[in-house]
Design a protein around this nucleic acid. Sequence first.
DNA 1: CGGATTGTTGAGATGCCTCAAGTAACGTGG
DNA 2: CCACGTTACTTGAGGCATCTCAACAATCCG
Lengths: 254, 254
Amino acid sequence: MSLPKDIMPLRAVPCLFPADDADDFQFCSTCAFSSACRDQGYDKAALHELECLVEHIGPFEAGEYLFREGETFNAIAAVRTGTVKAFTVDAAGREQVLGFFLPGEVIGFNAIHDARFPCNVVALDTVMLCRFSFPSISALAARTSALQAQLFRLLSQDIKKAALLAGDFSADERMAAFLLGFSHHYSARGYSAHRFTLAMSRTDIANYLRLAAETVSRVMRRFQEDGLVKVNRREVELLDLPRLEALAQPVLRG
Amino acid sequence: MSLPKDIMPLRAVPCLFPADDADDFQFCSTCAFSSACRDQGYDKAALHELECLVEHIGPFEAGEYLFREGETFNAIAAVRTGTVKAFTVDAAGREQVLGFFLPGEVIGFNAIHDARFPCNVVALDTVMLCRFSFPSISALAARTSALQAQLFRLLSQDIKKAALLAGDFSADERMAAFLLGFSHHYSARGYSAHRFTLAMSRTDIANYLRLAAETVSRVMRRFQEDGLVKVNRREVELLDLPRLEALAQPVLRG
DNA sequence: CGGATTGTTGAGATGCCTCAAGTAACGTGG
DNA sequence: CCACGTTACTTGAGGCATCTCAACAATCCG
């Protein structure tokens, strides 16, 4: 998974919105736009434009709102570091967690439709974002077919993700799929597929999986008793990936 | 909701893939691309290109497959007439209904991501489609910002739709939202908001709502006893829209 | 150290599912 | 047009997965 050296010099080109820290390269290698950046070496002008377009914002501290429900939509944002939670609050004041975003994932695709955010988005720990003005990135996409295609793919991916959660699955299946989601995300980005730290509370997990918090606790304990995982607070170690995959199989398509 | 007369003459312009029947105009007024067509009178060249792009296919009879899971994706399709069901089949052979598509809705957005259909798509009654080659419509979208924006909006809308179903709601809430979905769809297109015919079986409804078929029956009966609806086979009449809206409110965002 | 938050565990309640039987519509062939 | 089988739908009784309620333990934080 080594990156072609020849894209490095681009960092040195003058930019309207110059990147403001040193680990952008590292970041870009895990970002959702990376394939549009890296794979399309033939269109360096467009890649440069994308770099000029990005605004690095943050840091946000845990609990800070990145976006609020109802807010006007004018930019998407990729998570650079940290973890983010999207949720709505219903008439009775109860939270409904829509999803979590890890580094490299893009926030805001569900806001395009009516140009307003349909949910709140809050930092769960210290979060840095890359912000892309949506009109600007759309205009760039019109000139760069690889970028347009990548945007369509990412939007399409979100449809599939949302549909996954909608299936009717048991608590065990949901939990296994949830844990494996992190494993897959991290291992695809060069981190451990076995060990990771959850940034969110049991309550948030339960809410996201449409379970009671108590059920999440019980399933976690049973998984541990069965030797599937080892859990300590929010530290998770996956001990038996094959069995977890088998459990999650109905969720992750059959 | 009257349409500008001045777009009519476009039907007379020679076309590579000439439209093959007389009610295209009627159709286009209910189609998901209609706003990209109608609202953007300033870009008639692009509108013309979109017309040339479309292939009218069908009719398909009830039970015929329009797409099959795993099939290579190369086109999206708008429903012109009829009703369509999308579903997967899990390892144990059980169906999982992902959604229904009514006239004007677009099929295939969830297939972009990995260029293959993640689900089967089957006609529930006699169905006619408008097919748009995805590479072609993408290329056109790159030249026509209104079309690009419309595609982004439609994709984004599908994300929101999928997330709706994913919430944890009671059988009553789901059923009310399901029925109101038809009401809203039809009334937005100039048909009755109160009376319509369901094209799908109770089993399909139940499967889609993640309920047992028996539960759907029972909820329907109770709704009828409470004077909310009048149901006869697949004929539905909504008698008390306000109370149904109130019931469905948690589902249709709070 | 004390209060607040977060997570765990048990006991009982419940909404929905499963199973099983029965009824109604539909199509088919006689 | 009617008997028949088939499919779709309805209804009831009982079971189970998950929720709710309540108490408690652990951790965090000032």
